[in-house]
Simulated scan of single mutants.
Amino acid sequence: MNVSKFFKSFNYAIEGIFTATKEQNLRFHLVSALVVVIAGFYTGLSTTEWLILILVMALVIGTEMVNSAIERVVDLASPEIHPLAKQAKDIAAGAVLVFAVASVIIGLLIFLPKWF
């Protein structure tokens, strides 16, 4: 294994994260995650609840990043408007929505019993 290549791959990944933070939707998810973390500290969540929330936040943010990557690849491959390109982008966005809605439900199931 080439150690230099291995560490370069981390730099590429970090660069990808910074590039993705330019996306409005990803910034919204990051701010939402920050709000959840702050609320979690004030609520006094258990280790299991933290693990669930961290996993859910990572899934939403990761899915949003994959969605952004898919959108860029589709735009590169099909610069003109094409029905299949639109479907690919819509499906990827739909996947983010599924995870985001599930994360809201999970958050409510964790926080509401503690607050009320």
Rank of each mutant, 00 (worst) to 15 (best):
Q24K: 11
V74H: 05
P113I: 04
V60F: 08
S46R: 13
L109I: 14
P113V: 02
V36T: 12
I38P: 01
A39F: 02
H82Y: 10
M65F: 04
S78A: 13
F18D: 07
N11L: 15
P83F: 01
P83H: 03
E23N: 01
R72L: 09
V73R: 05
V60R: 01
E71F: 01
V56K: 04
E80Y: 10
L45T: 08
V101T: 06
R27T: 08
I38K: 14
V36C: 11
V98L: 09
W50F: 04
V56P: 06
N25C: 01
A58G: 08
R72F: 08
S46A: 13
V73H: 08
V35E: 11
G94L: 07
N11G: 15
P83E: 06
I61P: 02
S32F: 11
L55S: 12
V104I: 11
L112E: 08
L53C: 05
L34D: 10
V56C: 05
V35P: 06
V3N: 12
G16V: 00
W115L: 15
Q24L: 10
Q87H: 01
V98P: 07
H29I: 01
T48D: 11
V31G: 02
H29D: 05
H29S: 00
A92L: 05
L55Q: 11
L26A: 04
F111Q: 08
N25P: 06
S68Q: 09
V66K: 01
P83G: 00
I81N: 10
I70K: 04
A88D: 02
F99K: 00
K22R: 13
I17M: 03
I106K: 02
F6T: 13
L26Q: 07
F99A: 05
N2G: 13
L76D: 10
I70A: 07
V66G: 00
F18V: 04
A77Y: 11
F111W: 10
F116I: 15
F7W: 15
F6A: 11
N25F: 05
V31P: 00
T63A: 09
A92S: 09
A39M: 13
V56Y: 01
T21C: 06
V101G: 08
E80C: 02
V31L: 14
A58N: 08
L34E: 09
N11Q: 15
H82D: 09
K86E: 03
P79Y: 06
K22W: 00
R72H: 12
S32Q: 12
Q24A: 10
E15F: 04
V73Q: 08
